[in-house]
């Protein structure tokens, strides 16, 4: 089994075998980050450009650390410090970056499909680090890795994804991945945050958090995007949290050994109560640790090898 793709653009394009290959490889990479010398020479001489046109701490740092631990050189570009402020288009910027011969370009962009456009334009491997409300494949992979590490499997598990499903690329990538791997996925959120015909993605839909998390193995809370409060999608944060905050009362509806996940950054007291985020069921920081391993696995699988 090999990953024959040039790019990683979305979970939608991945087969079960490919997902398993990435997760197994990532599991072997965990060990490298626990060493005293956290660096292997595998990607020595390779250059990775992290092109982040949207704010990010976790994902950008995670990609940078992953590249460095594999021995590659990493360069970070963010929107505010790049020539975008001078009006350069993404296409021109990509052509210029390509002319400097990097090996991988990791891109986050607020426009859905931006990584796909780049992938057609340049010969380098493109990794999607989140595009608009479309996909965030590495987040879904690290989530699946965390679930598999804790539960030993993904198939047959019941997973509830709660929050702003409509604007969440994390939710979309996870729905593709988890359903493909054989999990049963339920989503819940305010009606304004549930995309129409979401059932067609193979999930069941609930209006209330309590119904959605009843008897589930995994609760995945999404960040409520507070910047959307002005868009009249929900009346107030307080009202949102009254209905959709995971707390010590409603969490009892899930299985006793249910795991709580969150892609970060968390809004304490809005979508998740602080004692739940820091509690024994939470694997939020494990997700972050696994994120580095998943990204190392992808960089390893996508680079090198003459074709």
């Amino acid at each position: 089994m090999r990953l024959t793709k040039k790019d990683l653009l979305g979970i939608q394009d991945l087969s079960v075998d490919e997902i398993n290959l990435i997760l197994d490889t990532a599991e072997s990479f965990i060990e490298v980050s626990t060493r005293e010398i956290k660096k292997v020479p595998t990607l020595r001489g390779k250059t990775i450009i992290n092109l982040f046109m949207e704010p990010s701490t976790r994902t950008r740092t995670s990609f940078e650390i992953a590249g460095k631990r594999l021995g590659a050189d990493t360069v970070n570009i963010s929107a505010t410090t790049s020539s975008v402020v001078k009006g350069e288009t993404l296409i021109d910027m990509a052509r210029n970056l390509e002319a400097m011969n990097p090996d991988v370009i990791v891109i986050r962009h607020n426009a859905s499909g931006a990584p796909h456009m780049l992938a057609k334009l340049v010969k380098q491997s493109i990794i999607n680090a989140g595009d608009g409300a479309h996909e965030h494949p590495t987040q879904a992979l690290l989530d699946m890795m965390t679930i598999k590490a804790r539960k030993g499997r993904i198939a047959g598990l019941r997973v509830a994804i709660i929050g702003d499903i409509a604007h969440s690329r994390v939710a979309r990538s996870n729905i593709y991945g988890l359903t493909r791997m054989g999990a049963q996925v339920t989503v819940a959120g305010p009606a304004t945050m549930l995309p129409r015909q979401i059932e067609q993605m193979g999930v069941t839909v609930h209006q209330h958090l309590e119904e959605a998390i009843k008897g589930v193995d995994i609760i995945m809370m999404l960040r409520i995007q507070t910047e959307r409060e002005q868009q009249n999608i929900f009346p107030s944060l307080r009202e949102y949290s009254r209905c959709f905050c995971l707390n010590r009362e409603n969490i009892r509806l899930a299985k006793d050994d249910a795991l709580v996940m969150h892609p970060g950054p968390i809004n304490r007291g809005v979508e998740i109560a602080p004692d739940i985020a820091d509690g024994p069921a939470s694997v939020i920081l494990e997700q972050v640790t696994n994120g580095v391993a998943v990204r190392m696995a992808l960089l390893y699988l996508l680079t090198g090898g003459k074709s």
Binding site: T25, S28, E31, V40, P41, G45, G305, K306
Partner: peptide
Amino acid sequence: DITLYRDDLLTSNKKPRLGKT
């Protein structure tokens, strides 16, 4: 597992499956 230290990773077309260390 010596995979990450191989000297043929960038020249060969094969991507050896990574084992546990």
